[in-house]
Design a protein around this nucleic acid. Sequence first.
DNA 1: CGCCTGTCTTGACGTCCGTCGAAGCAGATT
DNA 2: AATCTGCTTCGACGGACGTCAAGACAGGCG
Lengths: 125, 125
Amino acid sequence: MSRRAAPHPVIDLSADTPCCPPLAQRRVPAETAAVLAPAFKALGDPVRLRLMSMIASAAGGEACVCDLTPAFDLTGPTISHHLRTLREAGLVDAERRGTWVYYRARPAILRQLAALLTVEPGTAA
Amino acid sequence: MSRRAAPHPVIDLSADTPCCPPLAQRRVPAETAAVLAPAFKALGDPVRLRLMSMIASAAGGEACVCDLTPAFDLTGPTISHHLRTLREAGLVDAERRGTWVYYRARPAILRQLAALLTVEPGTAA
DNA sequence: CGCCTGTCTTGACGTCCGTCGAAGCAGATT
DNA sequence: AATCTGCTTCGACGGACGTCAAGACAGGCG
């Protein structure tokens, strides 16, 4: 995808962000929050959360749009819009192979988000 | 807080939700996505992400609004609004003690969100 | 080439969100 | 009681979001 060079501010957390300590351990700096919040925001929609899960759990590590769309009661453009949101949040990558477009999860950022939310055990609910 | 019985649909994930398997392992069901997405959405704002971190990492496990507000360039009502959002997402609890209101993180849901995002190692970025 | 299928973009619409000022409520102090 | 301080709620405004229909683009196939 990404027909042109960089038409949208695609987030790249995989490299420079030093995989911040847990949110409950040290105050998240404003700059880090500004970078990470969009990723959480992208997961903050039920459709996108399911899309993310379908992509991340797909056999072969990738899922075709043609397999994702029928799982929802939404039009094609709407699914495409949500996939674009996930893409711009840096959560997935897209690749066109022939007729179909395949989406693939980016485990690095998922791990980063999970690490941020990690709470050391022993803290009662 | 919660002056009246249940004026807002405060989410309660601590008990009934069986702490779902990782998002990348099994497809998140629509119902689970509908329940969990609001929590991610609440974290999807830089101010709320910082608030959450300030509360979760506070000494004694709780933070006073009077300590949170001055950390931002926002008015009191705006901070109060964000705290209410975190509260309604089930991420924090509030308690009034005398003059001040103290917020406290709910580790259970944080752990649940972290578990959902967990990716087994070995998956290259 | 022309058409068909799959996907994305555009433009539009209604709704929700982040922010503020003003007003309200709860405790503490005097 | 009167008042002051801390926090919340209310009402409003501009901007962003989720959705769709219509159109555009890409690749395969006749």
